[in-house]
Design a protein around this nucleic acid. Structure first.
Lengths: 149, 149
DNA sequence: ACCAGATATTTAGAATTCTAACATTTAGAT
DNA sequence: ATCTAAATGTTAGAATTCTAAATATCTGGT
């Protein structure tokens, strides 16, 4: 059963991914304009890419429990970066929309995120960069497959 | 400047990795023998692989602030899964060592982790599995390069 | 129309983690 | 030797997140 070994190897490699993320983002002492928590920043970034989804969907994408996400939405709304819009089709749902200020800050966060990673990647040669990009693309493709099922 | 685009693409793909991890580990309602928190489990797993390192090193690998890790070590020590050993070479440092019970539970957690990922990967074909493994290996290699510098 | 079960959000209290300040120990410079 | 700065682990209080229960709404079957 050759797959057994492949799967175990994948499991061990997957365990390294959080460390990989930290390697790329370490020493991120830079602060953005607003004084936002990590979850608030992630939320803003994700709404920026996919606006008008429900609270439940955002909480999943950000990686928080539903109950925890309520506080994040509260805080962002209080800072006038986000607005709750109760869904017309399903009154249980709350869609989130960025304000103008929210969009501005989302763009700032996005730029800073890319700069940090780019600075770290500057240590790599062109071949490594291409290999890394290809590897990440394969992972993204496979993730889509897994999520579709 | 062709690298600019490559780096931006990498940044966007890296942002998807947490979701990828959640995809592989979702619905992990299985509980192990001891009633351990996620950080306690990660700590046990990491000590199992690399025994006798210092508290500071473990806190980094687990992804916790040093101050937070003290409580995790306290809890594991109180549960008799881990022992603090003050370093002979540097009296500031505390090494952590697994007890026999700690080793047993670490093996359980490791097996469960691999089972969960294997169950999710069972949906993939052999080609996808090999591609995924290769992609993760490339990422691991590049991470090593980045950490060495 | 009505009911039972499912879904979406909120709430409250417990558990976890973070930040900043502290004490001890080490390393390097003078 | 002595001093200064850095490294290690701990502590305490604030911030964040989790879990479980509560509320409101929707869906499908009768």
């Amino acid at each position: 059963m050759p797959n057994k070994n492949t799967e175990e190897a994948i499991a061990e490699l997957v365990a390294l991914l959080p460390m990989f993320m930290r390697t790329l983002l370490e020493e991120s002492t830079v602060k953005t304009a607003a004084n936002l928590s990590t979850s608030e920043e992630k939320t803003l970034m994700y709404i920026h890419k996919h606006e008008g989804r429900s609270m439940g969907e955002y909480s999943k994408k950000v990686g928080l429990a539903r109950g925890s996400f309520t506080a994040v939405a509260d805080s962002l709304e209080q800072k006038k970066l986000v607005k709750r819009v109760s869904g017309p089709d399903d009154r249980r749902k709350c869609a989130l929309v960025l304000t103008e200020e929210g969009k501005k800050i989302a763009r700032e966060i996005d730029a800073r995120f890319k700069q940090q990673i780019a600075a770290r990647l500057a240590q790599l040669g062109e071949e490594d960069l291409n290999n890394l990009k290809n590897a990440l693309e394969i992972i993204a493709q496979i993730m889509e497959k897994l999520n579709d099922q």
